[in-house]
């Protein structure tokens, strides 16, 4: 699988990560799954509702996930995955990420510092939850 994402959507993820810094940001990747590639058509910001430690944790509540899914379906699209930022950490999934991950979804991680976004990578959880496969990002 690969994830196709345009410059405009990537730029929106960068901007969100930079605005939220030093806290983590998160949002949904919305578009079409056409088999070998997921095509992102839009990215939607979510509220980071984690109660504390938002510089190293994020949470998107089920009510908001449901709302994203309904909004996507109204537009004949699907929620393909989610993005979040790692302030001052690499764009690699953490053990905490793995424990909380869903299969199928693309997890785009943006590494951000005070100077801006340094790196963006996409990851998909393995079937047996043992780890991730990195997913090709097609611009």
């Amino acid at each position: 699988m690969a994830l196709k994402i345009g410059q405009g959507d990537l730029r929106n993820i960068h901007r969100h990560a930079e605005e939220a810094y030093p806290e983590e940001c998160a949002g949904a990747l919305v578009g079409m799954d056409v088999g070998e590639v997921k095509i992102v058509v839009d990215v939607w910001r979510a509220e980071n509702t984690h109660e504390e430690e938002r510089s190293r944790r994020f949470l998107i509540r089920p009510e908001q996930v449901r709302e994203f899914e309904e909004r996507a379906r109204e537009r004949d699209m699907d929620v393909l995955g989610f993005y979040h930022s790692h302030p001052d950490h690499p764009a690699e999934p953490s053990e905490y990420d793995r424990e909380h991950a869903w299969p199928y979804y693309s997890y785009v991680i943006a590494s951000v510092t005070q100077e801006g976004v340094k790196d963006v990578k996409s990851w998909v959880l393995r079937d047996d939850r043992s780890g991730y496969e990195q997913e090709e990002l097609v611009r």
């Binding site: 190293r56 994020f58 949470l59 998107i60 996930v65 449901r66 905490y96």
Partner: peptide, 12 residues
């Protein structure tokens, strides 16, 4: 019944 994800994560 609906199974609905919440999405969580972070670093380290």
């Amino acid at each position: 019944l609906s199974i609905i994800p919440s999405i969580a994560g972070g670093e380290s």
